[in-house]
Nucleic acid binder design. Structure first.
Lengths: 149, 149
DNA sequence: TCTTGACTTCAAGTTGACTTTAAGGTGTAT
DNA sequence: ATACACCTTAAAGTCAACTTGAAGTCAAGA
């Protein structure tokens, strides 16, 4: 069986060793064992826990809430339902985040068109003063929103 | 013509007045004028600037970089090209963020299936010990990644 | 005119997630 | 046995983006 030090595991995950020590200190890594001399010993299975922590972090979840999830997982099968509920909630949150970023993307695409048009004409006053029906149909709603209806 | 105080504009944008004062202090709102008595007077056109700032913030851009963009905009038509470049770069960044969130979403969907299966069987050991070909095809790659190939 | 509520500035405090520093211990290779 | 790289903890420092507090000013209504 393969074991890792904090430095090796950090490298594998692409994070700083101090980050893993900080997570451990915050109670996110109760599964990590220690050697006789007090050195952290990461097992192969710990990698999967760290990947799950990383996944939850990417959803924007705070460390304190990830800790709650890990603590539930440590209690075993009696916490399956709340863990499922937490995952489902986070899944919905990510869907909402994607929707918001797609909205932001539409605004940026409008702005890109805006500056491309400005560049072609040498001035922003051309795209700025266009009437609604002069601009590409897909940007009309975006501009209305930017200007507050 | 319609004018707003900091409190009114903050309400319209759904942020705290202190946030707008902070942005002003950081140089993000050079376009905001003042009354005789020194009170900020927001014009209708300032709303659009604030919406653009809000859009860039949603892309994860830092205030100092948003400030650079605003400063370029204040210089007028000679900065059209760098502004276009900045918008295009940010657009690519948002696309990458969406792609990453979609990857995260797939992992969460796997975890949701995992805990649903655990719930049905009363134990996580059922989904955990499944062989690759026992799990739904769309989750195989996700599990391989979680476990580090 | 006076009250009231919202405005002003400046400075200091908060939050979350790390990172750094200092002082010292571990473990492996020669 | 002695380097040497890497490990340990505790405490302090950093950063971005606000938020709060104190002390005072402005403007509209009674």
């Amino acid at each position: 069986m393969m074991y890792y030090t904090v430095g090796e595991m950090a490298k594998r995950l692409g994070v700083a060793p101090s980050t893993l020590r900080y997570y451990d200190q915050e109670g996110l890594l109760p599964f990590v064992e220690r050697s006789e001399g007090g050195i952290r010993v990461f097992k192969e299975s710990d990698y999967e826990w760290l990947q799950v922590i990383s996944c939850l972090k990417k959803t924007g979840m705070q460390l304190r809430d990830i800790k709650t999830f890990i603590e539930m997982a440590m209690q075993g099968d009696q916490t399956i339902e709340p863990r499922l509920a937490l995952i489902t909630k986070q899944k919905e949150s990510v869907k909402a985040q994607i929707a918001e970023l797609e909205e932001t993307l539409r605004t940026l695409e409008f702005k890109e068109w805006y500056y491309n048009t400005a560049k072609e004409n040498g001035t922003t006053s051309v795209p700025r003063n266009m009437t609604l029906d002069e601009l590409p149909e897909e940007f009309r709603e975006v501009r209305l929103n930017l200007r507050g209806e």
